[in-house]
Amino acid sequence: MSLYYVQKFLYELNRDPKVQESYRQDPEVAYQGFDLTDEEKRALTEPDIGLLFVFGVNGQILMHFAAFHQVDWQDYLQKMRDGVDEHGEVRDGVYKVTGYEGVEAHASALGQESNIGEE
């Protein structure tokens, strides 16, 4: 696990057209210099938005990567929810601080109705 380098790669990709071009041409080449596991490379290449969220990638980085792949907003949110269902709780990063156990459980922990569906 190297959340730092997954996020760093996405940070570079989000802001640098040259990295975007390299990633489009040959992801393996684009990943050079970033200490990534095979699982992380697979998630980035596919891309598996849900698994990247479970790794702990910050949404402020991940949402731009989703937009880069033409994933629309509601679909982006759903992919993260599906990722938690499939792979379990967020493993690292800022969302791990209090644990992330899914939208409904999180809403009830706050004593609130989930207002997600109302969007």
Binding site: F53, N58, Y76, L77, Y95, H106, L110, N115, I116
Partner: peptide, 11 residues
């Protein structure tokens, strides 16, 4: 909870 599955939740 911007850009997370909780996006849209507001306290």
């Amino acid at each position: 909870w911007p850009a997370t599955p909780d996006s849209g939740k507001i306290n």
